[in-house]
Design a protein around this nucleic acid. Structure first.
Lengths: 275, 275
DNA sequence: CAAAATACGTAACATACGATACAGCGCTCC
DNA sequence: GGAGCGCTGTATCGTATGTTACGTATTTTG
């Protein structure tokens, strides 16, 4: 069973003529990056001619050079997507059904934050803290609880925070209250919900500032969003994981609270006394 | 000091117009592979036009697209050469306001799972999967979204799963439906809510099997619970973090789903056809 | 040792790719 | 409300790229 192109090559390198073998060896030596460059560069690196490279990839079973490159890219993508598989040391993972799930979740969080700069988070926090209008939050089938969670916290440190719940018709009608000064926080991961996309589009047309929490494949709502947070969701389970997005949400809640420290503290004391 | 293109992007993403920002976000989301594909593919993935992609790379300081791709490839090459550097990175993110929060959260999860054996989790999953009656879920002020999240998933793989929402009176009345064969999942972290404690006590008296998600200081409900999950909640923020509990919840959801695999799959297919 | 077959590179070709000019649109600022 | 500016997509263009045909060199075989 051959799963990678590198294996395929070492499998057939014996049957190749001299020049093609040199091509194969240079590819293995700087795998797989040389293969992603142009035929001319590849051939120069290997010290052979361009047609030799093309004959080489043809012998591997690819119809043409681009097809070969796509295969390499797919392989790379799979490798980069799950850092777990690379560092996976079966010894440490006690063999229980739990650990892989936890490991994947931790990886997802690291990856999510690796693609998310402090600057971006600060920007979003500032948007949420210093918006001049209202804040609305909404989520999809599985992510709506995240919207609720965030709303529950934000509503304590600032006024005019609303979670949009219930039937579609109900929150669609709230669009009439939304304008340029307002912020709409949307949670939407696969499978993306049409109703949410439509909602986001309309809100966008009304000039609402949209902050989107989505997965790495980006909900179509990304087109309308001013800020996009792409969290990793893949775990060894039947379901996608929203844990990474949850942590980002908590981070933002913390950041907003900090930015509103002075006003927020006063507000919290007021709330306490209301009990 | 900017060492990677990803950093360069997050540094300048603030100064970019909307469409270029979309390009930036899609690149970050599938970093860096999208950038190695053709302009046409990149633009399609981002939902913008080709010139926008070119303007985007120009803004990053590259003379042309190939030069941009070469830079990405060089970066990838460096990364692939030394796998250490990519896992080593969390410290390098500059000590911004983010890292401590993330670090603390990751620690919380590790600690939480360290005190939680596979056996315990399997037991709880079995309880939830093979209960003979109904499952009820409820949470406190900030944790109710977690109850909702879990309910949303469990309700798909098995029947008779109910989230108790709304006013106290409403769910108090549901006690009349609860008995020995039923399971009640409660989320309760500081500050523990009296109403929940009373509710749990009554349910316990009726013989309901209680599964409690709480923090490391244990809600008073622990006295009535058959299973207790104690998650770490401390983070450098004004709020406690429910992230660890969230991950445990997801883990349980996954485990229950696996245990119900055969029946659950049938049920999921049925649900799909209902749409 | 000769003849054939295979391997390999040079050079011409066609295509698909990146680049550019331009026009429409929305937004902001008087 | 109007003028100006900046952003974005469409259409076009030139070119770099992959591809192919062909001739020479090299090896193989009878």
């Amino acid at each position: 069973m051959i799963s990678s192109i590198a294996e395929l090559i070492s499998d057939r390198i014996g049957t190749m003529p001299a020049s093609e073998r040199r091509a194969a060896q240079t590819l293995i030596a700087n795998y797989p990056l040389i293969g992603l460059k142009t035929v001319a560069e590849f051939s120069a690196a290997a010290g052979v001619s361009s047609p030799t490279i093309l004959r080489f990839v043809a012998r591997l079973g690819f119809q043409n050079y681009p097809e070969f490159q796509s295969a390499l890219q797919d392989e790379l993508a799979a490798q980069l997507q799950s850092p777990a598989t690379r560092t996976l040391n079966p010894a440490s993972s006690g063999g229980g059904a739990v650990s892989p799930m936890l490991e994947a979740t931790l990886d997802n969080m690291r990856e999510t934050f690796r693609h998310l700069s402090d600057r971006q988070l600060a920007d979003i926090a500032a948007t949420l803290a210093h918006r001049r209008g209202k804040t609305f939050l909404i989520g999809g089938r599985f992510t709506d609880p995240l919207a609720r969670y965030m709303a529950a916290h934000l509503a304590i440190v600032q006024p005019d925070v609303y979670h949009l719940a219930g039937q579609e018709g109900i929150w669609r009608d709230r669009l009439i209250d939304m304008g340029k000064r307002d912020v709409l926080v949307i949670f939407d991961i696969r499978r993306y919900q049409d109703s949410l996309v439509r909602f986001a589009e309309t809100a966008h047309q009304r000039g609402v500032h949209i902050v989107l929490f989505t997965d790495q494949w980006l909900s179509p709502i990304a087109r309308f969003a001013r800020h996009v947070i792409a969290g990793r969701t893949a775990v060894p389970s039947a379901w996608d994981s929203s844990a990474a997005l949850f942590v980002v949400a908590e981070t933002l809640i913390g950041a907003v609270t900090r930015q509103l420290e002075t006003d927020g503290a006063k507000r919290i004391r007021e709330l306490e006394s209301l009990r």
